[in-house]
């Protein structure tokens, strides 16, 4: 069982490596060797091909339909775990990263979807790479009450803490950050229309609805003042 677990883990690492390299352009054997920490043995590659997960086309390594599905799930688990660990639990980058590498092999499909829903179905990981969508994302099941929601779903007048920002364009991040709109800041939603207006500290900032949908927040628990 133990042996099986380790081998599964190694196969998954390789699949993840191929997926990541493909996002950056393409995946050759050489790059794959450089990418994954452990050496990729002939045996491992043969195993992958025998399992029908990977195809070799010259130097190019390709995922089969089956491999594609598995890789997608591993990447999804890894990146969701990163979000959870770094944004919600606020662990340091290196700790979050190493834990995420463990989580990606452990989470069951149900647990993965729960985490995804809990985080408000985040579209990207903290490094800005896309998180593959899961079934839960399209169904938007409401059984798990999401802890993190996009700002656009916050009630007017409510206060919330920013958990993460996941914009389509990276320049948005710089602009927001220079105004103090960063994860960890508390904001109050002032109005939704004709544009979103939030208050961060003593500063009011107007936003497009799209950007409001890219700022993920955790609604603050109302505190009673003594």
């Amino acid at each position: 069982m133990r042996v099986h677990g380790t081998k599964k883990k190694r196969l998954e690492e390789v699949l993840e490596g191929i997926w990541t390299l493909r996002e950056a352009g393409g995946c050759t054997l050489e790059e794959l060797h450089a990418q994954t920490g452990e050496p990729i043995t002939e045996e491992l590659l043969e195993e992958l091909q025998a399992e029908g997960m990977v195809r070799l086309r010259g130097e190019e390594v390709e995922l089969t339909e089956k491999g594609e599905r598995l890789a997608r799930e591993v990447v999804r688990r890894h990146r969701l775990a990163e979000r959870l660990l770094s944004d919600v639990l606020e662990l340091s980058e290196s700790v979050a990263e190493s834990h995420a590498c463990e989580f990606e092999h452990l989470l069951s499909p149900e647990a993965t979807d729960s985490v995804c829903t809990f985080l408000g179905h985040p579209p990207t990981c903290p490094h800005g790479k896309p998180i593959p969508r899961g079934e839960c994302c399209s169904k938007l099941r409401k059984e798990v009450h999401p802890l993190v929601t996009p700002l656009s779903e916050l009630e007017v007048g409510a206060e919330a803490k920013i958990v993460f920002i996941s914009p389509r364009r990276h320049s948005t991040l710089d602009r927001l950050a220079s105004l103090g709109v960063v994860p960890g800041s508390t904001l109050k939603l002032h109005q939704r229309s004709p544009a979103y207006v939030i208050r961060v500290g003593e500063l009011e900032v107007a936003l497009d609805p799209e950007i409001a949908g890219e700022i993920y927040v955790k609604a603050a628990v109302k505190q009673k003042h003594h």
Partner: peptide, 12 residues
């Protein structure tokens, strides 16, 4: 091309 973001500081 894309529209740029509307992120605007609202002064008092």
């Amino acid at each position: 091309g894309e529209r740029t973001d509307f992120v605007l500081e609202v002064p008092p």
